[in-house]
Design a protein around this nucleic acid. Structure first.
Lengths: 328, 328
DNA sequence: CTCGAATCTGTGAACGTGCACAGATGATGA
DNA sequence: TCATCATCTGTGCACGTTCACAGATTCGAG
């Protein structure tokens, strides 16, 4: 910066003001500096800026998932890309942090308190999560994708899982299906629990707990297992709501292997609108998750907090349309 | 750090030496400093360290792919996780940089020259890539995953696509298949081109160009389209080597829809050992890509260069076993 | 006992930026 | 003409480290 100042015939202070777009820079100085920057090939040193500003211009994105899920779940990738887009427009660097083992989580605590990170986006936290505790203790700008109930006043961005599940279940019943079951995955996450809640709501008095099969993860294998269990209890079942497309795909394969036709004998609906949906025959009815928008909105929320807006505890719920295709 | 020094009754210099694990720190000083660090709650300021060291302790990972592929391709996710693992063990932060539009690429050039990044890992570069040019011009530590031919002396880590393709093709012929076709995707990448080269090699004089159908991407849709084209030209074909599992899955569906049995009538082999492989009926024979290891090895190569080892132009080829399942 | 080497310690000067402050200039109004 | 104000500019200090260097201490060998 010193070289630029000399070259332009002004002082460091003026160059600094120019670079930060502040007032009180004359047109003459402006032009001289612009030319000098090109000539010198100047690139600002971010480390020095961080040092004096006490800002790192970086936002962490914590993914609390096992490695395997990180690789497979397309929503996570989209959230990541969306967040990255918004952050890089604001000249922030996104740092993706994977939290898998307890060791990872411990290291994360250090990392977050090290001043390397101005804020953090947390994806797929569970209730009672160690990461949630660490983040709220450190009191750094944060936004959650999804909303575990115990995040206090922190910002969150989510889809209305409950409403979508309600809409699906209602439609299944309105199209004449009377014995609708659910394969309810990932009940330890708010997303999974809310989808079940919407299902239960919609059925009201007609709800029968034996028509729900809980499985651990949003995976194809869990879908197969869940469907087998459900069929064993209710061979006459005529509708299935699965917590994810992968689960639905597993269910479809088991149903078809048992000789049932879809959608004639059993209607199936998934969740995510992932690549699984179009691979099923017939194509899956499902819920489109605006994953990119979730990432963008979460990033925007963190940036607002970094700029001084206090977190109000209000969250944003994004729209997630149900896509009706051939499977129900 | 000053506070720690005062608390421990030593000087900043001694604290610095202690923190960096250098020689010439007495046991007394060591213990006093350890206690003081805990008491003061000291966390080193990385910005200040970067400033004086001219090191950012960060490595960029550039993914030159359209956003959609980034989300879908499980290999990229695994490479990313592997690299992250090695880097974070060495206390380096990984910054994932997505290059999609030309605008992204331009911004990337600035970014890389800004001193924010000590080195860079490049995934899925093509020959004649603008990113490759930028990286070699800037002369920063770099490692490629895959090996485009024009990366000069830069380090690379790849699998032996050619040898694997050769093995597959040979085995298809040895099991009695005489009219083996190939759906050759992504010929603009070295991975795609090498798989085709291995196929061609293995056939030798028996090679028939009309048995190869080139398609743009490693996708399911391209697999369907490629298979239809191949079948139209060679209805009597009895083996197919597809450049990826997604392509193979598309091919399988088209073949089965046309009434052909797999593997009795046509043998099919994919590439990647991704989740597509187990979803096919019968399960796909395929090649296991050690994607995590690719990431780890690339990260290690960059770290070596950062530590001063010059790039020798030698690459690493990792083993990729062929997994024989039901489809061939 | 002396000298040199090895070990340990403290000090001051960087690194490249932002910011507060003081000073300079020109315009405006009394 | 002089005070007031807005605009513009330059200077020195601070941010929290690392590193080179000089000084202090200890130890062993001659």
């Amino acid at each position: 910066m010193h070289d630029v100042a000399v070259q332009a015939g002004v002082s460091r202070g003026t160059v600094s003001r120019f670079l930060n777009g502040q007032r009180y820079v004359s047109d003459d100085a402006r032009q001289a500096i612009e030319a000098a920057i090109v000539k010198v090939g100047f690139v600002p040193n971010r480390a020095a800026r961080s040092l004096v500003m006490r800002r790192s211009q970086a936002v962490g994105l914590i993914v609390h998932e096992p490695h395997s899920l990180f690789v497979e779940d397309p929503n996570i990738g989209s959230i990541l890309l969306g967040a990255n887009e918004t952050l890089s427009e604001a000249d922030y660097q996104m740092a993706t942090l994977i939290a898998d083992s307890p060791r990872d989580i411990a290291r994360l605590g250090n990392y977050l308190s090290g001043g390397l990170i101005d804020g953090v986006i947390i994806v797929s936290a569970r209730e009672g999560d160690a990461i949630t505790r660490a983040v709220s203790r450190l009191d750094i700008p944060a936004a959650y994708v999804g909303h575990p109930r115990d995040i206090g006043q922190a910002a969150y961005v989510a889809i209305d899982n409950r409403r979508a599940a309600h809409a699906i279940t209602t439609r299944l019943r309105e199209t004449g299906r009377s014995r609708v079951g659910m394969i309810a995955a990932a009940l330890d996450r708010d997303s999974g629990a809310d989808r079940l809640a919407g299902f239960t709501d919609a059925l009201g008095d007609a709800f029968d707990a034996s028509l729900v099969e809980a499985v651990p993860l949003y995976s194809y294998g869990d879908g197969q297992a869940g469907m087998r269990a459900l069929l064993a209890r209710h061979p006459d079942l005529d509708g299935v709501f699965a917590s994810s497309d992968a689960v639905a795909a597993g269910a479809v394969d088991v149903l078809q292997a048992s000789g049932r036709r879809i959608p004639e004998d059993v209607g199936v609906v998934g969740f995510d609108d992932s690549s699984w949906a179009m691979r099923c025959e017939p194509a899956l009815s499902t819920v489109r998750q605006p994953a990119g928008d979730l990432g963008r909105a979460a990033a925007a929320a963190v940036l607002r907090q970094i700029d001084g807006d206090p977190a109000t505890g209000e969250g944003t719920l994004l729209d997630c349309p149900v896509i009706w295709r051939g499977s129900a």
